[in-house]
Design a protein around this nucleic acid. Sequence first.
DNA 1: AAGCATCGTGATCACAGATCACAAATCTGG
DNA 2: CCAGATTTGTGATCTGTGATCACGATGCTT
Lengths: 235, 235
Amino acid sequence: MGDRVLPVDVSTVQERVYLEVQAALHQGRFMPGEAVTIRSLAQAVGTSPMPIRGAIQRLVAEKALVQLPNRTFRVAPFDLDIHAEQTRIRCAVEGFAAYRAAIRAPAGLVDELRDANGTMRGAVAAGDTDGVLDANRQFHFALYRGAESSQLTEMITQFWLRSGPFIAMALRTPESRTMFEAGTRLHDRIIDAIGKQDPDGARFALALDIRAAAAWFRRRYRSEQSDPGEGSPAA
Amino acid sequence: MGDRVLPVDVSTVQERVYLEVQAALHQGRFMPGEAVTIRSLAQAVGTSPMPIRGAIQRLVAEKALVQLPNRTFRVAPFDLDIHAEQTRIRCAVEGFAAYRAAIRAPAGLVDELRDANGTMRGAVAAGDTDGVLDANRQFHFALYRGAESSQLTEMITQFWLRSGPFIAMALRTPESRTMFEAGTRLHDRIIDAIGKQDPDGARFALALDIRAAAAWFRRRYRSEQSDPGEGSPAA
DNA sequence: AAGCATCGTGATCACAGATCACAAATCTGG
DNA sequence: CCAGATTTGTGATCTGTGATCACGATGCTT
């Protein structure tokens, strides 16, 4: 019978709401600091306030949203100081995951990383920014799964949840192409270090990758701030 | 806010199970007369028996499934006598809907029918049987919606729910191509009658369409019965 | 013919979600 | 600046859904 009917989605409305809002945040569809209300979200996704509550509480716990003293919710705030701090933390945490992945080097990891990086190259060549971001994410999380620590992966996911401003910048900036091309070369260095089971090399190359993307973002961000056009952050 | 998050699916597990099983029946993935159990369906779609019960009860009410005196369920039985009776009823009911559609002739109906028929032509030319069946369905239900009677459309839907043997035959028989090509020409006649607001012409052309497909099916069915290979019905 | 397995269904319980009401905070107009 | 209106988050209630368990009936196997 299993070949005649497909599995059905048994997730709850709250889970689906959570995934939709999480994706919107991650893709930078909300501005940092923007107010988010239970009733407006409920209206937008077509449910009652109840499932929105649970989803929003979870996103607050994950620090993608913040709840103010007057109990209203906003998208987590953002500025270059916050960004610099996040970059330092990411280098430490994700660098450690890369270090561990190089030590454990489970079977198939190098092939999986090469595949994801190859897909990313193809997407860059095609000018497909959505595809680039997706492949980049595939690459990084394949690497972090290689560390074989679900706690680490969860922690890293929460930081990625707050990369909305970067994602939005990449999507509206054609010049992101050269930044991503450079990123695929840094990915090559990470793969090489994993292949040689060189943990320090993996950590170092991973940190270069994160810092290069952060530097690109900072330059673009400052440029947009000094020349305010559309898309400037609210906070 | 509505442009930043998409509506979320708020259907219940039972509703989704119903749609999946209904689609499987309609696409002929089950043999007429085949036994269907609550526990095996639950395992296949990945739920507990509860939502399967509700879905199956609904399909029994719609006569896509039957419940035997010992309370077990089977796919509705099928033979050429049943098929002939269904064809007569379809000509009467769907013919009446076409008649009404020609009288009401709501704005945009003719264009919508032409579009669907054009899509069907393209799919026939491409040898895309799934696309052909989908476009055929689009055409017919656009026509029936033109009758502006939800009761009629519901009734017609139930008959279409029992076209699994025809769908399955079309999908496994390459010669269905010429039958569908002829179908698009009969669709042209229906469109012409709707355009001229000729109800008798619409009804007549619609009945020709149904009968032609039924005749094709009958010949293929008899051929398979007298030369039993794979795909012969169980009942 | 007896025992075992399978089937549909009834019952129970927990959870999810719709809806309503209320208190607190904010906003607007005078 | 204040009062009234509106908006917001949250608590409470109720209903429906779905997981789980048990039982009786039926069918199958030995």
